[in-house]
Design a protein around this nucleic acid. Sequence first.
RNA 1: GGGCGGUUAGCUCAGCGGUAGAGCGCUGCAUUCACAUUGCAGAAGUCAGAGGUUCGAAUCCUCUACCGCCCACCA
Length: 702
Amino acid sequence: MEKVFNPAEVEKRIYEKWERSSAFIPKVPTKKQNHQTTKQPFTIIMPPPNANDPLHIGHTREVATQDALIRYHRMKGEPTLWLPGADHAGIETQFVFEKKLSKEGKSRSDFDRNTLYQMIWDYVQQNMHVMEGQLRALGASCDWTRFKFTLDPEIVKIVYRTFQKLHEDGLVYRGERIVNYCPRCETAYSQLEVDSVERDDQLYYLDYGPVTIATTRPETIFADVAVAVNPKDKKYKDLIGKTAIVPIVNREVPIIADELVDPDFGTGALKITPGHDPTDFEIGRKHDLPPISVIDKKGRMINVPEAYLGLKPEAARDQVVADLENKGKTKKTEKLHHVVGVCYKHKTPLEPLLHEQWFLKVEPLVKKSLAAMDKGEVKFTAPRFEKTARHWYENLRDWNISRQIVWGIRIPAWRCEKCGEWAVTEGETPERCNKCQGKNLVQDPDTFDTWFSSGQWPFATLQTAQKGDFEYFYPTSVMDPAYDILPFWVIRMLMLGLYATGEVPFRTVLLHGLVRDKEGQKISKSKGNVIDPIEMVQKYGADALRVATIWGALVENDNSLSEDNVRGQRNFANKIWNIARFVLMEKRDLKSKISDLKSSNEDDRQILRELDSTIQIVTKALDAYRLNEAVEELYEFVWHKLADVYLEKTKSRRAEAQPILEFVLKDSLKLLHPFMPFVTEATWEELGEKEMLISSPWPAAK
RNA sequence: GGGCGGUUAGCUCAGCGGUAGAGCGCUGCAUUCACAUUGCAGAAGUCAGAGGUUCGAAUCCUCUACCGCCCACCA
């Protein structure tokens, strides 16, 4: 044995050995066996990383966490499945690709839809293997034979089917609504893809005849259809039912009453612009006032007097403000500090616009999800995340699932050009319109929101991986993404999983924290504190990096990663290796069994007692997802109790202690294996064991 | 404005009702006998503050002060 454990030399070989041996593939019992004494399966569907991106340090923690659970349950003899995959990450990936195009002086409009799609497809295929190679380098013991990509045809088919079912059940509808539209990205976003920034704007008090209204967006006055006041507001009581006059265009509009108006804001009178404001849209619908659009999808003024036509809204605002002042219609202005929605990609202000989209009616699905949580069918390891999930469900609005991009699953809906009726299918082009028999059907150019398809991931993967997988492995055991995608993904998986299968998609939700830098700062490119996991693996070994991401903080909490810590864990791996070197220096009795371990020596008895207690603590900690506790306990036992104390004491009676030393080392390797798979397997090899450690049984306390 | 957390040794964090813990860092000593990617010894904390519950509180409750994170259609 080398004096120092060299991870770079063994990791690749060991990973290949595991993979070749089919150790990652679960042994699914036959039905007959399953009725007897076979253990329950343990399943984790891996949150699919973005196919186009290399893994970041956060993925290391995710892999370390899930792989530890997977290896532990596998060693306990449960049929264990960890299903890997990749996500097409619609908007993210299309934007990265468009950036690349723009560097070449091109844009998406230079290509037709199919060409663009194919180009992105090729680009993603090129990069997908990077991520897979990195998962291997980290030691992820996932079942590659069941690998899935969110755009695999069989997955797409499932997504189509779900959409069609939702449509049939009336849970999905086509609606013209105010959506958050980014004129720069030329797509609409959902509630979740909107960031907020605080800003100072002018609040203009404008003369609308009998009333004065306050607005930050004077350029939208061309789209005004009413003025609204709160019905309880005494000062306007007599004006309700009368008319106000929109300045510049001198249009008469009704003065209406609606409780959505806050009497304490501005003058208590609100101009109603249903085409460009969500609240106004709602008020407009209640009062049967049709919306008018004066800003188009490229962010230009339309349907307005010549002087403003084609201007960007900001320019139009300046113009309108000037004209209002000339006409003496501006009563006063004041500064307003408020929050505006911006595009989460570019931070450009979003334009609330009318747009036809597919919406998912969320309420019935929310109800079922909450009920499943009430009944304990899904459990959160941290109560605070359950609170967050409930809070989300209670505030969720209908979900806009259409995106105006190419990269994704195209919505299987066709509109009849003749009568306007929509036909939704499981993917095949319909022959004719169901309503008018018209033959001219045009497919919706939009694609699904990525989260709509990934929300179906647990059942979509299992229904298409191998025959019988869904029946055997679903509902899965643990779902473990980072907590920051709880609202994007977890609550959607629960809703869609319950809807499509009638069962929860997972029994336990374990949400892990983020990896931060050594000062506890968030890791970001702009801060320049990114840590490349592969660089760390090459320098210190995968085991060291993995343990460092688990060490020191609860799974659910954020964890600071410092290179010092990684180095410390590398030292620990070396310590393990050197304990084995010490043990192997003595001639060995290969026949020694546990039953031979009756020793009257007090040191022997003590280390065996301590081993027992370690087994108990580690097992209990793993069952409770307290990985840091398990790892810290093992570190203490192996380094300080075994190496520093016991091993030193055996030096005076070396041969006699050999069976105990060997026994304790082997059990220690088993206990450490979920966390440090490479060094433990490499050491196990040196001990001359026939069976691989990955397939060895988990130790039991006496 | 709403929600969720945090405040424990220089740093990063465990502990969550019974005499303050870990890793890293720091200070001394040891020097090659498995490992210097080492060993031994050590310094270091009124557990944010104030009240309360309890025989007993870092741990439970209330309030206060800071610090985070998430959400939000007062135009």
